[in-house]
Measured scan of single mutants.
Amino acid sequence: IGSLMYASIFGNVSAIIQRLYSGTARYHTQMLRVREFIRFHQIPNPLRQRLEEYFQHAWSYTNGIDMNAVLKGFPECLQADICLHLNRSLLQHCKPFRGATKGCLRALAMKFKTTHAPPGDTLVHAGDLLTALYFISRGSIEILRGDVVVAILGKNDIFGEPLNLYARPGKSNGDVRALTYCDLHKIHRDDLLEVLDMYPEFSDHFWSSLEITFNLRDTNMIPGSPGSTELEGGFSRQRKRKLSFRRRTDKDTEQPGEVSALGPGRAGAGPSSRGRPGGPWGESPSSGPSSPESSEDEGPGRSSSPLRLVPFSSPRPPGEPPGGEPLMEDCEKSSDTCNPLSGAFSGVSNIFSFWGDSRGRQYQELPRCPAPTPSLLNIPLSSPGRRPRGDVESRLDALQRQLNRLETRLSADMATVLQLLQRQMTLVPPAYSAVTTPGPGPTSTSPLLPVSPLPTLTLDSLSQVSQFMACEELPPGAPELPQEGPTRRLSLPGQLGALTSQPLHRHGSDPG
Rank of each mutant, 00 (worst) to 15 (best):
G224W: 12
L403C: 04
Q364C: 05
G477M: 15
L406W: 15
A132E: 12
S273V: 11
D128C: 01
G439D: 12
T131H: 14
L179P: 01
E161A: 03
D336M: 13
D397V: 10
P317E: 13
G439R: 09
T131L: 06
G268T: 10
P440W: 09
E232S: 11
G263C: 10
L210K: 01
G224E: 08
F352W: 13
Y432S: 13
P380Q: 06
V417S: 04
Q255M: 13
F352G: 10
S452M: 13
S433C: 14
R248C: 12
R423P: 08
R138C: 10
G288A: 13
L341H: 12
E142N: 04
G439W: 13
K242R: 09
P292H: 13
K251V: 11
D147V: 03
H185V: 13
T437H: 06
R145I: 03
G146Y: 06
S358F: 15
L454C: 08
S172F: 01
L133F: 04
L381R: 13
S203A: 12
F135A: 02
A178E: 03
R308S: 10
T337M: 06
S290I: 15
R405F: 03
R177A: 03
E258S: 11
Q464W: 04
A167G: 12
P318Y: 06
P285F: 13
S335V: 12
R177I: 08
G477I: 13
A167I: 06
R423D: 04
D297Y: 08
D128S: 04
T445F: 07
A261S: 08
A398V: 08
P511E: 10
L406C: 05
E194D: 06
P372C: 08
E473D: 13
L144G: 07
E142S: 13
E161P: 02
R368W: 07
G441P: 13
Q238W: 06
G360P: 15
L462W: 01
L449Q: 11
N220P: 15
C471K: 08
K333Y: 09
D397T: 09
E254Q: 14
E201A: 06
S452N: 13
G441S: 08
R316L: 13
R217Q: 03
L474Y: 15
T131P: 04
D190K: 04
V149S: 05
P321E: 10
Q255H: 06
G270V: 13
A431H: 13
L163S: 10
G288C: 12
E161S: 03
R241Y: 10
L399S: 03
N220A: 12
P450F: 04
L377G: 11
D175I: 06
R168C: 08
P340K: 15
V176G: 02
L341Y: 08
G233K: 09
L481D: 12
F202L: 06
P321C: 11
G160K: 01
T436G: 11
L462Y: 05
Q424P: 05
A431R: 09
D191T: 03
Q483H: 09
R177S: 03
L418M: 03
Y199R: 02
E393T: 15
M425T: 13
D510Y: 08
F352S: 05
D197C: 12
T213V: 04
Q255E: 11
D191Q: 03
S140A: 06
F245I: 15
Q419E: 08
P326D: 13
F312I: 12
R506D: 08
S304W: 13
S140N: 15
K171N: 09
P306S: 10
S446C: 12
S209K: 15
P256D: 11
V195C: 08
A470R: 11
P447M: 07
S225R: 09
P169D: 01
E161K: 02
P486T: 04
P318S: 11
L133E: 01
G234A: 12
R308K: 12
Q422T: 12
R145N: 15
P453Y: 12
S208P: 07
I222G: 12
K186W: 14
S335E: 13
P429Y: 06
L457K: 08
L366N: 13
S304M: 06
L410D: 04
P450M: 06
P311C: 14
H185G: 06
T445N: 12
L179G: 06
V428D: 05
S313F: 12
S466Q: 11
V148G: 08
T229D: 12
K155G: 06
H507Y: 08
V392A: 15
P503H: 08
E407L: 07
G299Q: 04
E298K: 05
A498L: 10
G234D: 11
A178L: 02
R246S: 10
R405V: 05
T249A: 10
T426V: 11
E473R: 12
R145K: 13
D204M: 13
L376C: 15
P271E: 06
S290V: 06
S260W: 10
E472S: 11
Y134D: 02
S509D: 05
L420Q: 08
S463I: 12
Y199L: 02
N164H: 11
Q402R: 03
L399H: 04
A178S: 10
G268F: 08
G234E: 11
D197Q: 09
G477N: 12
K242V: 14
L474S: 08
G282E: 14
S290M: 15
D460C: 05
Y363N: 08
E407N: 08
P440S: 13
G257F: 05
R506L: 13
S342E: 13
S228D: 14
A167F: 09
L163Y: 12
T408M: 04
R248P: 08
